[in-house]
Structures are given as structure tokens and as C-alpha cells.
Design a protein around this nucleic acid. Structure first.
Lengths: 115, 115
DNA sequence: AAACGTTATGTCAATACAAACATAACGATT
DNA sequence: AATCGTTATGTTTGTATTGACATAACGTTT
């Protein structure tokens, strides 16, 4: 059973107490891309997905969360832009922190069990 | 942000080092059911899934793992049976141990971050 | 007012994944 | 040899999620 060549993988996400999925890696990644790129459209391109798809996912998250995650502006010289709300930024920060700590813990546990 | 009403959920699974999924909760659950029920058929019923579906998943796991997980017997007075190999039993044990320890760790981290 | 790049949204196709249906083979027991 | 409940597979159907296409609206700049 010397399977140190097996990897433990995990996925972390946040749910309501009633079991509804709120957000996880995908959603957080989208928010980070928007923060970096400045618009939904550019973020979608940077992640290799279509605008329509990303827009739909954003809408879902916002209505599940209940608070707006983006301040959107359309028109203007650059056509428009989208910037994250402070809630969104906090959400990203806490999620990444959680995820990293869990991953670290898992790595220790893994080497402890499958040594 | 007093979201103690948010739940952290996670899914753990095992991959090869090349990124192929090997097994996770679903597969382990199937093996446990077979161990308890004594046959693929009975196990499928007990989990509310069809025999065909469970059989297909078992085949996939075995060919990905490369070692047989079941000793199958067809015919006979009871029609047949299936029992776990010792590899399968070890696999279950280690996975459950890993999963539980990671869950415990995650719970601590969660209350530490979203307190 | 014309143009441009963005947000906003409906619709339809494609694809993947799960469930259901249908048989065949098997072998101890009767 | 007939029976019974299991293993073993191919085929089809259904569903759900993703992706692509198409358009409208918007507002600043030129």
C-alpha cells in the first residue's frame, strides 16, 4: 500500500444552514478576476468563459447571498465597468483564508495516514 | 458579517498524481453497502440506486485502481454474492479516517475564522 | 447624433451524466 | 432439466448543466 503517489484533493464551499450552496472556488475565482480586470466582460475572457455564462453565475450568487457583490456601470467612454463591493472583498478574503488553512491541515493529515 | 449561520462544507477524494479521480465518498459508500449487504444488487437497493448504475461505477473504480475490489460469484442457491477484497477494506478504513480528521480540523478552522 | 464597449437577458443547441429497459449467462438446489 | 436471484452488459431515454447565438439598452466621448 505504499501509495504516496496518491493525492488527496478537496473542495470547500459555503452553504446556508438549510443546505443551499452559496459559493465556492468557482465563484470566488470569478470575483477575483473581476477585481483584477475591472469588468465582467474582461474577466470572462481572462477565465476563458463567455460573458453570458459569467453573468448568469453572478446573478445566481447575488440572489442567493442577498447582497450585491458588484457595483455595475454601463455606458461611458470605456463602455462600462464593474467593481467589487466591500462585502465581496471580505468574502474573498475569508474564503481564501479558510481554504488555505484547511488545505494545510489536510496535507499534514494525509502524510500522517498514508506514510 | 456575523455569519455563524453559514456552513462550511467539503468533499474529499483521492486522485492519481496525474490528476485522474480514483475514488471519493460515493465509491466508498458503495463499497460499504456491499460489505454490509453481501451483494451488489442488495447494496444498490439499499442505496436507492439501480444495479446497472452501481455495477458501472464499480467497474470504473476497479479499472482505475488496477486491483479488484470485489470477489464476485454468480449462480448458486442464492444466485450469487460479492465480498470485498482486503484491499477494498483497507481503502475504506483509510479514507474514512482521513475524511473524519479533515472534517474535524475544518470545523476548528471555521469557528476560528468566522467567529 | 454616431460610435464604441460594456451591461443585461432571452433562447436554443450541445453535451454530459444518470436512470430505466432489456437480455444473457451462471450455477447450486429442487 | 427447471427455477431462482445474482452478476454482466448493451442500448435507450431522460434530464440537467453548460455553451453559443442574438439583441437591446446605456452613457460618455467624438
Amino acid at each position: 500500500m505504499e501509495n504516496t503517489h496518491f493525492k488527496v484533493r478537496m473542495r470547500v464551499w459555503i452553504e446556508t444552514e438549510t443546505g443551499e450552496t452559496l459559493y465556492g472556488e468557482g465563484q470566488i475565482g470569478i470575483l477575483e478576476a473581476i477585481e483584477k480586470e475591472g469588468s465582467i466582460n474582461a474577466a470572462a475572457k481572462s477565465l476563458g468563459m463567455g460573458y453570458r455564462s459569467m453573468w448568469g453565475r453572478l446573478k445566481k450568487i447575488e440572489q442567493r447571498i442577498g447582497t450585491p457583490l458588484l457595483v455595475r456601470r454601463k455606458g461611458g467612454v470605456l463602455g462600462g465597468e464593474s467593481v467589487l463591493t466591500s462585502e465581496a472583498k471580505l468574502m474573498i478574503e475569508k474564503f481564501r483564508q479558510l481554504q488555505q488553512q484547511i488545505n494545510d491541515a489536510a496535507k499534514k493529515i494525509h502524510t500522517c495516514i498514508y506514510s
